[in-house]
Structures are given as structure tokens and as C-alpha cells.
């Protein structure tokens, strides 16, 4: 194995660049299709959709590790002015609380150490889709 750059590396870098551009295009297409009124914040815990929170109603949702064993500590999800954030959580690097307020259907809040994902939905969701 060579330890210095060669021409094959630059082909690989070119392919990576094409891949990134393609992903950017796909991302834009997916995001543009997601426009619409912000209605609900969906809280998924341990891979299951647990809460459907009305984005028009300011509130705080407190989740405890006793109820959801995947949580590393108490988690508080806050909805205010049609925006959602993780106000408090326990995780090694606190990325999801650092992400702060989210008001786009295309930007999920991901907290993998706690196995929690929060996504905003812009359309009405049928009630029978829920595992509450």
C-alpha cells in the first residue's frame, strides 16, 4: 500500500465530490416537497412513535428514564412559538440540546444516546398510525 497521494486518490476524491453534489440535490428535492403548515412534533422513542405534540400549543413534555429505559436521564421537550427544542437531556455531548429551536419539517432533532428523534410534520396524520 502506498503512503503518498497518487492519481487514483484524486479519482476517488472526484467520485466523492459527485456523491456529495448528488446528495445535496436529493436533499433539496426532499426538503422542497416537505413544505407546508407546521402542525405536529413527532417524538420517537426506542424506534416507536410515542407522542404527537401540537405545535400551535406552547408546552413542555417531561420524559423520565423510569418510563422509557433508553433515556440516560430526565428529558424535557419544549414547544414555544411553533418551534420545538430539547430543553434538557442527559447525553455524553449534549448535541440535541445544543441544536436548540427547530421549526422546519426537514430538520429532525436526533438524540441517539437516548434513542429519541423529534420530527416536525406539516400535514395531518391519521390517528390509526400511532402506537401510543
Amino acid at each position: 500500500m502506498e503512503l503518498k497521494h497518487n492519481k487514483y486518490d484524486f479519482i476517488i476524491y472526484g467520485v466523492c465530490l459527485v456523491l456529495i453534489v448528488c446528495l445535496l440535490v436529493i436533499s433539496n428535492v426532499v426538503t422542497s416537497k416537505a413544505k407546508g403548515d407546521i402542525l405536529y412534533a413527532i417524538v420517537t422513542i426506542e424506534g416507536k412513535q410515542k407522542f404527537k405534540l401540537d405545535m400551535n400549543e406552547d408546552r413542555e413534555l417531561v420524559l423520565s428514564p423510569e418510563e422509557y429505559p433508553s433515556l440516560l436521564g430526565e428529558m424535557i421537550i419544549e414547544i414555544k412559538d411553533k418551534k420545538v427544542r430539547v430543553k434538557k437531556e442527559e447525553s455524553p455531548l449534549h448535541y440535541c440540546s445544543m441544536q436548540s429551536w427547530v421549526d422546519s419539517v426537514a430538520v429532525p432533532i436526533v438524540c441517539l444516546p437516548n434513542e429519541v428523534i423529534i420530527t416536525i410534520k406539516g400535514e395531518q396524520i391519521p390517528e390509526n398510525d400511532w402506537e401510543m
Binding site: C16, I20, L24, I26, V30, G47, A106, P108, I117
Partner: peptide, 20 residues
């Protein structure tokens, strides 16, 4: 796949740039 969330693709763009 695990979270059935297609919008994770928005993260992928940033992740791919940082991974290079």
C-alpha cells in the same frame, strides 16, 4: 431504516463533507 426518517439525508450531506 430504524427510525423511518427520510430527512436524515440532510445530515448525510454534512456528514459526507466532514468524513472526507
Amino acid at each position: 431504516l430504524l427510525y423511518s426518517n427520510v430527512y436524515m439525508i440532510n445530515y448525510l450531506v454534512v456528514l459526507e463533507v466532514t468524513s472526507v
